[in-house]
């Protein structure tokens, strides 16, 4: 399992990608479009993390499988906690993500109940929530109001992710909204996060980088893509044996020489390669 003999190679991972199911994401974020764009941009691993749902994860995985398994798709979710902190859950398989997501989605009101007498007003304000198949065809729409915060406390969200053997990541910690720092002022060391994500907005040499590095958590960099053009604009560079969830977990733990390059270094590398 550990593949200690196998050579470690750098893999590009963008572990924060939305699909058209997220109300705020573009309708162009379909499974085939996302996986094709990921290949074009040289991403080896992506994680699908829609707001409070994993409803399109299987379709994106299937779209990647149809293209020879490129990129490797990690099943994920972005949970909005009661504190309005965004937490990424990354799971060992689609079923685990869907089980966790079912518990999250069930906490949200239905879109039709938010604006009585106005069945489509939610969509007007927040956007469409389109469930898609692997070919990018609409197969329905999510009825829960995904744009809202759940009643799960941060601790409960992390526990739910861990219950399904998932990895809990504090999302876009450098952002002025929906981040651990913006909502809670200080990073809660006791929260049990397995990693923290910095966004594409964090500038190189920002004094906050040192603060984030001092958290003692693996730092990821995700694009938080809501549009195709954003996909892969930043990524994490992970040295591991192959693109898989098991390897990703070993990489976070630093097992057998596996490691994550510092997020800012990864961006530099990206600039270089694209030049």
């Amino acid at each position: 399992m550990r593949n200690r003999d196998r050579q470690l190679r750098p893999f590009r991972m963008d572990l924060h990608v939305h699909t058209a199911l997220s109300p705020c994401a573009s309708e162009e974020m379909t499974p085939p479009a996302i996986t094709a764009a990921a290949r074009e941009k040289g991403l080896d691993v992506i994680a699908v993390c829609d707001h409070n749902t994993a409803g399109n994860v299987a379709a994106v995985r299937e779209a990647a499988d149809a293209a020879g398994g490129q990129p490797f798709v990690i099943a994920g979710i972005e949970i909005s906690t009661a504190e309005e902190v965004h937490v990424l859950g990354l799971f060992p398989n689609v079923a685990a993500a869907e089980r966790a997501a079912a518990r999250v989605t069930a906490l949200l009101p239905r879109t039709v109940d938010l604006f009585p007498g106005h069945r489509r007003r939610y969509q007007t304000y927040f956007g469409e929530q389109t469930l898609l198949d692997a070919r990018g065809r609409a197969r329905g729409e999510e009825r829960a109001a995904l744009a809202l915060a759940t009643s799960l406390s941060l601790a409960a969200a992390v526990a739910l992710i861990h219950h399904e053997k998932g990895v809990a990541v504090a999302a876009h910690i450098d952002r002025p909204s929906y981040s651990v720092y913006s909502q809670l002022g200080l990073f809660p060391k006791e929260a049990g996060f397995d990693g923290a994500e910095v966004s594409r907005h964090l500038e190189e040499g920002s004094p906050r980088s040192e603060e984030f590095a001092a958290l003692g958590l693996p730092l990821l960099r995700g694009s938080d893509s809501h549009f195709l053009a954003e996909l892969g604009t930043v990524f994490s560079l992970a040295w591991m044996a192959e693109p898989s969830f098991t390897e990703f977990v070993l990489c976070l733990a630093g097992t057998g020489g596996r490691r994550l390059e510092s997020p800012l270094a990864a961006r530099e590398q990206g600039k270089h390669d694209h030049a």
Binding site: E83, L184, G185, L186, P188, E190
Partner: peptide, 25 residues
């Protein structure tokens, strides 16, 4: 305020805070 980053930056010393936020922080 319910944003603790904001409380940290702007709340007046010696004052009272009114908030919805019940996190340990």
């Amino acid at each position: 305020s319910d944003l603790l980053s904001d409380v940290l930056a702007h709340a007046p010393a010696g004052g009272v805070l009114v908030t919805l936020q019940v996190h340990l922080n």
